[in-house]
Design a protein around this nucleic acid. Structure first.
Lengths: 155, 155
DNA sequence: CTAAGTTGTAACTAATATTGTTATAACTAA
DNA sequence: TTAGTTATAACAATATTAGTTACAACTTAG
């Protein structure tokens, strides 16, 4: 006669990470702060050395800041200058400069719900309004801080 | 004698799209609303039909809502029930249930800046505080709406 | 007890975003 | 003319999302 007991214990840990807002934003803030603090010789290489990344990453972000009218970058000679006063540049300005999204929508809503269902028929419009407000609350907080204020907190 | 004129016009359009917050969130809101409105026969297939997606997508999200203590899902028999009253479930509860991130940080900040630079030395701490506030403003807005309020806006 | 329907979940794919990298053309001033 | 720089294309590695198929485990009706 044989007797047998099998016990299997399986522990599975699933780590999911939400895609967060790109470091482009924080790098852009870093870059603008550096241009403000060290107006001379702010080349892509110099900034990359402070941010600790590749110069091309900086130049890509500089291109966005340039397109947003925040900086002037001089090809050839190098270096960048701010086109607006520090107390006229808010974190929201920078956020918008580097987060090029269609419609600037932070939240996505699933598409084509079933309109034969009372929930499917209404969810998009009702939820859209709520999420717009939530995004707006975040952005208004960003708009409340200027680079001037930010830099004044450096030690 | 040859005369030659070359004109090249190159127009490049670069469309960048920021990764937005996953549709998991809106699908989860949809799902919970549906369970509230149609408490009977709310199986994964039924919900998927209303959301217009694959049932596995729904079951994955249901698993997260279950883990967050918002719903009870019965294996085998099927169907889900809400574990909290509609006026006690906020959009923030749902958001947190499906956006499993380390530290729940919406914003990322670039790592290892150069500490020999006054900007690199300070940027992380100073910016972190600002972004935390901005994220908090968004979340508090989400916390201000319950599923009860949301559903009452359906026509 | 069996059959039908369901949940739970693994595994895979396609599409897309991010970040870093190399390479090269074009530009500017000494 | 030369050295240093910006602008940008191209590519790789990595990661997330959303959809899909497949299958084991579960529950209840009959």
């Amino acid at each position: 006669m044989t007797s047998r007991l099998d016990i299997t214990i399986l522990v599975t840990t699933v780590v999911m990470t939400l895609k967060q807002i790109s470091t482009r934003f924080s790098i852009a803030v870093h870059t603008l702060s550096l241009i403000a603090v060290s107006p001379n010789d702010c080349t892509g290489d110099f900034i990359a050395g402070s941010v600790n990344t590749n110069p091309v990453v900086i130049r890509r972000i500089m291109g966005m800041l340039k397109k947003a009218g925040l900086v002037d970058v001089r090809p050839g000679v190098g270096g960048a200058t701010l086109l607006k006063d520090l107390d006229r540049i808010t974190l929201l300005d920078v956020y918008r400069a580097v987060n090029v999204t269609e419609e600037n929508q932070l939240f996505r809503i699933h598409e084509n719900p079933n309109i034969n269902c009372p929930v499917g028929r209404n969810i998009e419009q009702v939820l859209q309004a709520e999420l717009k407000d939530a995004q707006s609350a975040m952005e208004q907080r960003l708009a409340g801080t200027t680079l001037d204020q930010l830099i004044s907190k450096f030690e």
